[in-house]
Nucleic acid binder design. Sequence first.
DNA 1: GTCTATAGTGGGATAGAC
DNA 2: GTCTATCCCACTATAGAC
Lengths: 189, 189
Amino acid sequence: MHDPLTARARDIVAAARAVLEREGPDALTMRRVADELGIRAPSLYKHLPGKEALETAIIADGFAEAAAAFEEAVDGAADPLSAFVAAYRAFAQAHPHVYRLMTGGPLRREDLPPGLEARTAGPLLRAVGSPERARAAWAFVHGMTILELDGRFPADGTTDPAWRDGIAAFRAVRPTGASRTSGARTARR
Amino acid sequence: MHDPLTARARDIVAAARAVLEREGPDALTMRRVADELGIRAPSLYKHLPGKEALETAIIADGFAEAAAAFEEAVDGAADPLSAFVAAYRAFAQAHPHVYRLMTGGPLRREDLPPGLEARTAGPLLRAVGSPERARAAWAFVHGMTILELDGRFPADGTTDPAWRDGIAAFRAVRPTGASRTSGARTARR
DNA sequence: GTCTATAGTGGGATAGAC
DNA sequence: GTCTATCCCACTATAGAC
């Protein structure tokens, strides 16, 4: 179940995130987080049940930030899909370690604030029109992001052309098949 | 640099892969692999320099297997992209832990047999026609695969519609814009 | 709320004998 | 080629004093 955090717990989460962003996932240990606050590791357990809760709290903060960024980018944009992709890339590049934590592995949904995941997914859903297309588009965007972060594309230049090709692909298949005149929001296929 | 393995080293890699496939990444320890062979962990170091080399060898085997499967699926297929995707999904679902090891994180290319990565990438490249489109399509396919393996899509049914939408998207944007008559292999955009 | 002290677990890796 | 014996590391977590 999801529990709101105390003020001191929020301090700890902030310190943990700072450690993660600055030094990467291997540095995210209870000792290191305690050091960051000038206390001892065992003291952390008075405020948070354990390391998992700490990670989940960082993930929840990440989702909230990402959701806000996506909403601002997509809302009223002339090209919502491109706007979403730009915001998504920007978030991942600004917070690569947080992004990996958010997307790498299963998600403990029961410990996240209710509705947060759906809120984060909303902008892309609105940009592409159907849940199925949103999943496919998210897979593309996440795939590009994580493969790029991991250096899996041969380093022969920029990945911008691949991003462009993928965006073009998902824009080309509008629900009705028309190129850009269709505006039906709730159409499925 | 890449070094061929001795016969005994190959036995060790096979045992390590068996442990990984059966019990997952946390079980892939030097002690556990040694148990599998009925020897002690220190003995492994007479044949392999360390755990990293073991993992890289499993990855190399995975690439070789995947490359063979992709080649067979795509070669001469009426719909190369769908054939590739089916083979990719089948490999990942048959060997999820190996797939994660192969794709999760940076790749030590200098320890892989030369040309293996390019060979594995070949079938998709031939299916979509350009390196840029191949990267975008790989990102989609990997994204769907890893998000599905991690249970990141809400469990409201099958992911087949998302797969279908993504394949349709990448097929829709042929270099010339025609639906399926174009056969130009080297066209860029 | 924080501390000291410690338990308990697991891992990778090495030296040197057989 | 394999063994025993260790080393060293790191981590989570708890108990109980202050």
